[in-house]
Design a protein around this nucleic acid. Structure first.
Length: 270
DNA sequence: GCCCAGGGTGTTT
DNA sequence: AAACACCATGGG
């Protein structure tokens, strides 16, 4: 199935990344790592034909087959998967993913987007008209107060420690890629502020370990309400993709959990 | 003012 | 092992 501009938001606005914005004309503008792009109906096919963006959107993988195999596992999962059939797990930069999800804790998606935007504007590298995500070296030389001034709050110390570990080699993503999932997860969790959820986000979104299953407050509610008695392992080697279908579906159907729409919790973009 | 947000850490039962 | 306080910040 070809990628379409109309459904690009299923991947770019489903909670796995924080730097994309849908413009009034339906195009998408944003960045990943050091790369900037604006996708329009006119340039989308050419932009995704090869190189960086083809890999970013994981276009070499057969999501139709994976989705159908997940649909066969559970009827509720099938409903969530068919709600966003064009959703794909992006190949994000591991440092950007780890840093972003350190900032995500006890925070809402709207604020996370704003915070990361300020972080990029303040400390990203100028790539001609926009700023990249700050490389770990750029944050490693800051003080905690610098990051608190942006609104990071208590997460400032976590980001600073992670930046220093990555830039001096104590945390090596190249190594983590080659280790078994459980071992890579344990190593990630040695960094301050990285618990099970943030580690799973780094593994799924940053290292593309598709069996990793991040469980946040939404997923806890969803598992209890929609999949009673089921565990992440029951979703198989593509549990991470199943998780993303369910997270996205849950955010678009907050009434399923008999709560008022939480502050900033809705899927509205901004 | 109160509750919530893609949590984690440290302490107390 | 589970419950709890605490950690900043801003939107509803």
């Amino acid at each position: 199935m070809p990628v379409r501009l109309e459904t690009l938001g299923q991947s770019l606005d489903c909670g796995q990344c924080f730097r994309w914005k849908k413009l009034p004309d339906g195009s998408w503008e944003g960045a990943a790592g050091p790369h900037f792009a604006r996708f329009t109906a006119k340039n989308l096919d050419r932009a995704l034909a090869g190189g960086f963006w083809r890999n970013y959107f994981d276009l070499g993988r057969d999501y139709d087959a994976i989705r159908e195999s997940l649909c066969a596992l559970d009827p509720v999962l099938a409903r969530a998967a068919r709600y966003a059939p064009d959703l794909r797990i992006l190949n994000q930069d591991p440092w950007e993913a780890l840093c972003s999800f350190l900032l995500s804790q006890c925070n809402n998606i709207g604020r996370i987007k704003g915070l990361i935007g300020r972080l990029c504007r303040a400390y990203g590298e100028d790539r001609g008209g926009f700023r990249s995500f700050p490389p770990p070296e750029a944050l490693a030389r800051l003080s905690e107060a610098d990051l608190r001034a942006l609104g990071c709050g208590y997460r400032a110390a976590y980001v600073l420690d992670a930046a220093r570990r990555v830039s001096d080699g104590r945390l090596d993503f190249g190594l983590l890629r080659r280790l078994p999932l459980a071992e890579a997860r344990r190593i990630l969790m040695r960094t301050a502020g990285v618990g099970p959820k943030v580690a799973d986000c780094a593994l799924l979104y940053g290292l593309h370990r598709l069996e990793a299953f991040p469980t946040d407050v939404w997923m806890k509610r969803a598992m209890k309400t929609l999949f009673p008695g089921k565990k992440p392992e029951d979703f198989g080697p593509y549990a991470g993709i199943a998780q993303q279908y369910v997270f996205h579906y849950s955010r678009h159907h907050p009434g399923l959990f008999r709560r008022g729409t939480p502050a900033g919790g809705g899927p509205k973009s901004g």
